[in-house]
Design a protein around this nucleic acid. Structure first.
Lengths: 190, 190
DNA sequence: ACCTGAACACCGTTCAAGT
DNA sequence: ACCTGAACACCGTTCAAGT
């Protein structure tokens, strides 16, 4: 594996294991078997290395979403699956989730990172559109509705981690709340 | 003004002006007219100082929400007003907003900070409940519904700042999307 | 009780130099 | 082309000392 890939992997592992503050260039270099400033030969600075981690992470997410999108399930099952994927990802990789969806620098990025992020969102939007065509979601621009649903999941995860979402019997509060939202949004069958 | 208050004000100003990274104890001390480690005589460490900033910020927010809650408006007008307050706050004080609603340390805090945060949320929940009683929102536990609406606003602000929310003609996208959500949630008049 | 200045460990970044 | 080690500026934190 080339040094730049090893640096990205090392940074991602440190991020998952110890949060963003644990991703020091010294630790990354050491984990990749190079000196503490070898990263500068591959990335402009620490932010650029984190952006590279975000880019590959978005790629992985987009790939998993594409698999769900192409699977033989009903649109509503796909929507539930993709929401679960997203929610599980945030629980299993909280610091990386923060880097992807809660980081001003990631947000301000352009280039490949932005493209991968938009790709990820488009898989989600497409599944929402399938649900609309199947009559399971109301008739609004799919992008607007997808933003709303995605934003709600994202926001619920945030307030859950803020301890402001009271747990409900057994079930994940976020998943339960998303089911309530989808139920409320489902057009009345005539 | 006592030194501890001056330190909190200085930290809040630095936060608003330059983001969290600008809140160094050296800069805070200098702005408050004391040495770079005088803060340690009033706060356990940098995190504790930021927690104090969060606490007074939540207090201010709760006060503004209480004013809306007690104003002579219809429940739906109050809900719109409180959502606008929240959205405007995030735009005018982005770094402070992040500290309040997007910070793992704030989330993990207890004590007065937690109390003030819950107080803020309860004003919101109460107005949602008023809307439900007026028939403008569906019949679900007010806490659950309030969490959903709050989470959606929070999430929309996040994806807007992530550049994933396309602007709509003139209006704030977040405010427009929230109106769509409320319209979709409004029970059909029979 | 409240504050200061020196000191320590750590970090991002730069630079001159090595192969 | 790729890497290393020393160095610099900056930061959070601690400590001994001052009033």
């Amino acid at each position: 594996m080339t040094t730049d890939k090893r640096l990205i992997v090392a940074a991602a592992n440190l991020l998952d294991a110890g949060g963003e503050e644990a991703v020091t260039l010294r630790a990354v270099g050491h984990a990749a078997g190079v000196s503490h400033n070898a990263p500068y030969k591959h990335f402009a600075n620490r932010s650029a290395l984190l952006a590279a981690v975000a880019t590959v992470s978005f790629s992985d997410l987009a790939e998993a979403m594409a698999a769900i999108r192409g699977s033989p399930r009903t649109p509503l099952e796909k929507l539930t699956a993709i929401l679960d994927l997203f929610i599980d990802y945030s629980r299993e990789h909280p610091a990386r989730y923060r880097l992807l969806f809660n980081n001003p620098e990631t947000a301000a990025a352009g280039g490949e990172l932005k493209i991968k992020a938009l790709e990820t969102f488009d898989h989600f939007r497409s599944i929402v559109q399938e649900c609309q065509q199947a009559g399971g979601l109301p008739d609004a621009p799919s992008e607007t509705l997808a933003s709303l649903i995605f934003a709600t999941a994202h926001g619920l995860l945030a307030i859950e981690s803020n301890g402001q979402l009271h747990p409900e019997k057994g079930l994940s509060s976020v998943k339960a709340s998303m089911e309530i939202l989808l139920a409320l949004l489902t057009p009345a069958k005539m």
